[in-house]
Design a protein around this nucleic acid. Structure first.
Lengths: 229, 229
DNA sequence: TAGATTGTTAATCGATTAACAATC
DNA sequence: TAGATTGTTAATCGATTAACAATC
């Protein structure tokens, strides 16, 4: 008989969690398309990972599949939903109502309404520009930054999203931490420091582009090597 | 005597390249602040990686430092600039002039003008909405999507940026590939498939948020375990 | 039953860290 | 010289792949 564990699921590697989110999206789409079962090969093909890795990722949490058949789409979707705690809404405040901040907000409002696998909800925006205070973006109000410490607990926000210029990012991060935020997504193109109890995720859009540019350049050189000389 | 290599630098792991970009940004900032030298410890601290890894990453390309002293800030900056091929501008077209596309364009125009370590330049936008055609975003024109195949070679664009809704992403990717694009950044929240000769980078903003939400949730549970029971 | 596909183990691969001799 | 810090090697760690027995 297996020992009853204190923690419902094992602590899972970062990379695995990211893939689970991607699997779930595909499963959700397949379920809408009335698909009943899906094999690790099909799921792998649709998500761009290997079949063996799909099976290994899923096996961390139990035996979800049927040998010779595959995985039941709806069942696996529901299980991943549970594993990823998607029934729990996570409320976020966004600091920096510039064009990126507003774009993210618009996107978030639509996404939260449309996609049952998406559980992050932006509930307030903050900015220092007096001209922006009080404006509504798709129903979400822009508050002055000085109200951050008061609004965060009032709204029950636990996530902070930083979309201010690089020079202001660290200061905003400090204020989010002071306000009691548990996790931060940083869209500013600069590393920020937060205490270890605060989870930090960097989403540096320009980094992705520069990185891709580098890969393109080195591939081009390879091709030139191969053909030219 | 060492053999002269056909390729100027070794082929370098993905993760290393990403860190080099981050080192470079810090070095650029330090150089502006008149810093002369920087140790692997300092560079590590400012970028959030370990000192040993900083040294190992840099050692791939030669001996840039001085034992007992550290790295010359300006020299290392210039070397990384060369390694990352930043003297070469990479021109990009962006498809999907919605709020995210417009935000990225604004951001890109400013960044390209201000930051000498940034070499990706958006040169045209594309959309299918007739109401948007002909509009200018910070000096960049919005063209109808059907002109993509003609404009890409005309403008010398080699990178494509996808900011359309998920359902349209694959079709847009196909058209970018047909137009001769060498690399794609996909901001749509769905995996896309491209031929192996095309470099692909996924920048799924909602994935970052969901992933952070998961981490926050599991940490919270850990804390509750630790204290509560 | 035969064919298909999972769950799982062992092998491989790659990336990071630790340690330290070299040397400024 | 003594102290500091690099460049580099070996050890460790972790993640992915390959392979296959289990089993539907």
């Amino acid at each position: 008989m297996k020992e009853v564990m204190a923690v419902p699921w094992p602590k899972i590697a970062d990379a695995v969690v990211r893939r689970l989110v991607i699997y779930l999206r595909v499963l959700d789409r397949e379920a809408r398309a009335q698909e009943r079962t899906i094999s690790s090969y099909q799921l792998a093909q649709k998500t761009g990972v290997s079949p063996a890795l799909v099976r290994k990722d899923l096996a961390w949490f139990g035996e979800f599949g049927t040998r010779g058949v595959g995985y039941d789409v709806a069942y696996l979707r529901d299980q991943l939903h549970k594993i990823l705690r998607l029934e729990q809404e996570v409320r976020a405040v966004l600091v920096g109502a510039g064009s990126l901040g507003i774009a993210l907000t618009r996107y978030n409002v639509r996404r939260y309404a449309d996609d049952p696998t998406f559980n992050v909800r932006i509930v307030a925006l903050f900015d220092t520009d007096p001209g922006k205070i009080g404006l509504m973006i798709d129903g979400i109000e822009i508050f002055p930054l000085r109200l951050l410490g008061e609004k965060v607990p009032e709204l029950g926000a636990t996530m902070g999203i930083i979309t201010v210029p690089a020079y202001a990012a660290q200061q905003v991060a400090d204020e989010l931490v002071k306000a009691g935020i548990e996790g931060i997504v940083n869209f500013a193109p600069t590393p920020i420091h937060v205490p270890p109890r605060v989870a930090l995720q960097t989403a540096d859009l320009s980094l992705e582009m520069q990185y891709l540019a580098y890969i393109m350049m080195s591939r081009r050189e390879e091709r030139e090597e191969a053909s030219g000389r």
